[in-house]
Design a binder for these strands. Sequence first.
DNA 1: TTTCATTTGATATAATTTTATCGAATGGAG
DNA 2: CTCCATTCGATAAAATTATATCAAATGAAA
Lengths: 219, 219
Amino acid sequence: MENLNCSLQTLRRLPYYLYYLRHCDEEYVSATAIAKDFRFNEVQVRKDLAIVSKTGGSPRKGFITRELIHDLEEFLGYNNVNDAIIVGVGHLGKALINYAGFKDYGINIVMGFDRIIKTEMLIGSTAIFPMDRMKNLVKRLKIKLGILTVTQKSAQYVCDRMVDAGIKAIWNFTPCMLRVPQDVMVQNENMAMSLAILSKHLNEEIDNETQALIGALEE
Amino acid sequence: MENLNCSLQTLRRLPYYLYYLRHCDEEYVSATAIAKDFRFNEVQVRKDLAIVSKTGGSPRKGFITRELIHDLEEFLGYNNVNDAIIVGVGHLGKALINYAGFKDYGINIVMGFDRIIKTEMLIGSTAIFPMDRMKNLVKRLKIKLGILTVTQKSAQYVCDRMVDAGIKAIWNFTPCMLRVPQDVMVQNENMAMSLAILSKHLNEEIDNETQALIGALEE
DNA sequence: TTTCATTTGATATAATTTTATCGAATGGAG
DNA sequence: CTCCATTCGATAAAATTATATCAAATGAAA
């Protein structure tokens, strides 16, 4: 599974390039320009692009924007649409269902499931079913991607059922570390991680201020 | 700003340990056990814990759970509560406002702002104000943390106004790369990044299946 | 046409992060 | 008490990721 011909870090940067390119109306784009705008290292960007670009860039001009977008989308698999289910339809689940942007990433949320639902219902134009219909539906529709937005408590249980239904990639919005078989990938959307980084930054800043203050007082 | 005495990767793992410890009812916890449960490398966990733990662990027993939780919380700054504002109260904004879990991370969303709001209103128990009152309120309350959940279009503009109001750390839910001064930190909650990783995984899996099929046919 | 600045792609170096190995401490079992 | 398994903390090696440097290509300007 780790036979990514591209490093994880690169893979993480690619969506930024794609976003940038999609909002760019120049015919050509250079790695240099992208690096400058993102304040990334120039070589890094060039190497990243070299991985995805089929034709490569021309010296002095750069890459053909349209082509590069296409290569990126193809590399990331945004061309083949990935159908997805979402399990757990609380605030976050609803927000994701209503988020229109997924189609730009080749994701199509076809249905949702929730414990509490006893009979089929709609959220926007998305049908929500009771949990016990998941396995059948997912298997029948051969859906491989599942979005997990349930509570912590039921996270592992629901995860197991998703795997059992044939889900191969789970986008995990719970703070739990899920146990899955080798062939299933979990991508953690870990807000706690971000919060940790921010919190540390803020507290270090406060420390710095305090020390500056102490320094000033001592003078 | 980069004087983190701990690597970024370590910082990212710490919230997992904290979550684990908070849900653990043993008196002692060992790095070995944590590593096993998370399927992390044992040495990695031990090193991570060594950074945050003040007293260290005892051979043969490990760390005192209660103490380790405390050390982690202190290290991450979850003890001092960070007040935060949220700007942009669409689906996602509302979901975040209603998310009760932030208090576990020392985050307290004290108010929200939105362009569309013309007069003060409430979402749950959180007051939402029109944008033009932001600078004044944020400055007065000395709030340093801002959550950005506006549309792409207005992201940089709103970001600039947050910085102008004195915000020092921005939790960015838009897909934009924000330009900020040196002393302001941006943490990108980049769903596109996660999607890229998942999409790549799914498409590689499909490729593998196809190749296996081709292989089978050739035999 | 010649020169020059820019950009690519390749190779080399540096930094960061992960993983392996080992001795020392310590509590429990025999 | 002695031995043993476990865990820690430290040091060393490996892997990954980021950055620096340089020649070759190419278009534009002189």
